[in-house]
Design a binder for these strands. Structure first.
Lengths: 200, 200
DNA sequence: GTCTATAATACGATAGAC
DNA sequence: GTCTATCGTATTATAGAC
């Protein structure tokens, strides 16, 4: 049977994703993943013959797809990409709060843990963040920023968000994310208006 | 003998600090720490009866002291705190590059790994980041920002730096940190000038 | 394809000789 | 105070029955 309502493979992937997000890569063991997903160990290695590392790479790719689509969706539904960004940040803050500050930054911890210690996972993280950066920069361009400014701003914005996630998780508070949203909204709006003036 | 040129205790602390910084908390084992610091296992548990967790807390406290002093020093030596911040960011970028993107964000990874899974270490991280935030906010106030603005800006700046460290480490490039420095310099200078105008 | 039992190894921590 | 040998218990991964 290669198909069910939710395949066992997806069940493993989902559980792993959640655990990597809340605990990090090294603190999450295969035993915990199979226990919480209710899948026997043998099946796990049948679906993921490359073990924990292969699982992590696939989980990151799935996460990447999900959050890039989400970001694109939010930015498209709002004609003002700056307002959309602030909304996105507040949305993450809400998710952080709801989960007891365990979930809300799906890649942050794993990316840092593996940046210089696991080449395959690091590559997956680079692709994931690269994709996010591309989506955001694209929307900023559509919104009046020059390509160079949009690219540089995207980096700064994403860095702010990742750092905000770090602080909100560390202090168990949505405040850092809220302050970030307000600051970005203010700064970016001014910066964009300036950019638009130069064009006309 | 409780005193040498560099006590064994400090040697352990230093090695642990470096390994936690580059690999994270969970990926760093006691065995590796004692091996690289050249201290027998028995001695380790003599000096750190609370084991790995106690060691981490002490390492974070030592790190906190070091980077807060460094930040204070840099901000004091420069009469313009905004320029000082940009210099600080470029200094971190240089250290990241020199160490192959292994060192440069001493707390970032550990803080995320333990945010919701280890209360003692999380508290140590809160204190460390709180101290940094206080130092930075103080200098921004001296530099013309209102207390409220200074506090909120400090959060945003530190978040940007932590996120910048994440991206520079992930992409093995100083570019994210360089872009961040430029953006902050520009944005903060404008914001400060506006704040000063409102006073007069 | 599915699952259990187990291998091989590493972990943090300790006991006890010196 | 200093160090070695070792204890349980984790870990990832596999072998082999069904």
């Amino acid at each position: 049977m290669s198909c069910e309502t939710v395949s066992k493979r997806d069940q493993i992937l989902r559980t792993a994703w959640r655990l990597f997000e809340s605990q990090g890569y090294h603190a999450t063991g295969i035993n915990q993943i199979i226990k919480e997903s209710g899948v026997p160990k043998g099946s796990f290695y049948h679906y993921f013959p490359e073990g924990k590392e292969g699982l992590a790479v696939e989980a990151i790719e799935a996460i990447s797809e999900g959050i890039s689509n989400k970001l694109d969706e939010v930015c498209t539904s709002q004609d003002d990409s700056v307002v959309a960004m602030a909304g996105m940040i507040r949305h993450i803050a809400q998710r952080l709060e709801e989960t007891g500050y365990r979930e809300g930054g799906p890649l942050t911890t794993v990316a840092l843990e593996t940046a210089t210690t696991n080449e395959r996972i690091n590559e997956a993280c680079q692709q994931a963040y690269g994709k996010l950066h591309g989506v955001l920069a694209g929307h900023l361009e559509e919104d009046g920023f020059t390509p160079d400014d949009a690219a540089e701003l995207s980096t700064t914005i994403l860095a702010g968000i990742e750092g905000g996630i770090l602080f909100s998780r560390t202090f168990h508070s949505t405040r850092p994310m809220e302050q970030l949203a307000r600051q970005l909204e203010e700064t970016l709006t001014r910066q964009r208006n300036q950019a638009r003036e130069q064009v006309t």
